[in-house]
């Protein structure tokens, strides 16, 4: 926990460096694939901050993603700014909304938090449809040049930041307090931890990065529309990724995102299997939640304890 060589961090950064090299030196198709993969990874790291670390299940996490998507779409389509300003605004608003929402909903434990977050997503969807600024049917489309590599490095930077933060949060003071909260929140408070403060802190990080990732997502798809921006299956995908990879860890989200992404969009998109990917992911979530709730990283941790410093 202290003073150990951060092998995990080096390993993850090496993987990220390799991805950057591949994206830079291969064709557009590969770059686009990597952009999508990293959007998934960014979302996975984002939900990992709250759900993975504290155990508070954020079913409505799409809200923050949607905030980011709309921030970028409105800025770029209405005010013709650069997408980077959209990302900055998305991150800012994502973080601020998380603080505001969290100040209320993080007081609710267990299922109550989960349901409150779900209900907020649904309310958000209905409210967006209410405002003409977000386009008819909540749809905004913009036309800007197609620059896959720029998009790639935007999302790449976000994921790198998330990896580094996850790693240091986990091994530092906050991480120890957060784990105590996850195990026994009341006892943590009785040991001097201020649960609300720590939960708000990680929730804010979570909202901030979901906002940034949502902005890049809108950029990469040249627009946003309400029914997909608030699509709750996105929340499920994010949960699936950290669950499969390993909740709360710094390796789990990238691992889980890669698996879910490849399953979803690359292996199971044959026309005959329409919807098949949802079945596979849904079934995987059920099996993993019930039988191996600590995911792949958890399995490795138990089977090969000597690998611990490399994967955590």
């Amino acid at each position: 926990m202290k003073g150990r060589t951060p092998f995990t961090l080096y390993g993850l950064l090496a993987v990220m460096a390799a991805l950057a090299a591949v994206a830079s030196f291969s064709g557009v198709a590969t770059t686009v694939l990597l952009v999508n993969l990293l959007v998934f990874a960014a979302l996975a790291y984002s939900i990992n901050f709250i759900t993975g670390m504290t155990g508070y299940v954020s079913f409505g996490h799409v809200v923050f993603m949607a905030i980011g998507s709309y921030s970028l779409a409105v800025l770029v389509s209405t005010y013709s700014t650069s997408p980077f300003e959209g990302i900055a605004l998305g991150a800012l608003l994502g973080g601020l909304f998380a603080l505001g929402i969290g100040a209320v909903t993080l007081r609710f434990r267990g299922v109550y938090f989960a349901i409150a977050s779900l209900v907020l997503a649904l309310a958000g969807y209905n409210l967006v449809l209410q405002f003409p600024q977000f386009g008819p049917g909540g749809e905004l489309i913009f036309y800007i040049p197609f620059q896959p590599l720029t998009v790639f490095f935007a999302i790449w930077g976000i994921v790198v930041a998330e990896i580094v933060l996850t790693f240091f949060v986990n091994r530092g003071k906050v991480g120890l307090g957060i784990r105590a909260i996850k195990d026994e929140e009341d006892a943590a408070a009785a040991a001097g931890v201020n649960p609300m403060k720590l939960k708000l802190y990680v929730y804010m990080l979570s909202g901030l990065f979901a906002g940034a990732a949502g902005a890049v997502f809108a950029w990469s798809t040249f627009g946003v529309n309400a029914s997909s921006a608030f699509d709750l299956t996105f929340s499920l995908q994010m949960l699936a990724m950290i669950l499969i990879g390993g909740m709360g860890t710094s390796t789990g989200p990238l691992l889980g995102a890669s698996i879910v992404y490849l399953l979803y969009y690359e292996l199971l998109t044959y026309p005959r299997l329409q919807g098949g990917q949802f079945l596979v992911v849904g079934a995987a979530v059920i099996v993993i939640a019930l039988f191996v709730p600590d995911g792949i990283v958890g399995i490795i941790r138990r089977k090969y304890p000597s690998l611990k410093p490399v994967i955590e």
Partner: peptide, 30 residues
């Protein structure tokens, strides 16, 4: 008793030292 069940005994006590004594980092708490 309400131990932090998934953490080691040492980490359990370190949480109390870290936050109860307002230490700055994990090392001294351990």
């Amino acid at each position: 008793p309400k131990p932090f069940a998934s953490m080691s005994v040492r980490e359990n006590v370190a949480v109390a030292a870290l936050y109860g004594r307002r230490l700055r980092s994990v090392g001294p708490a351990l």
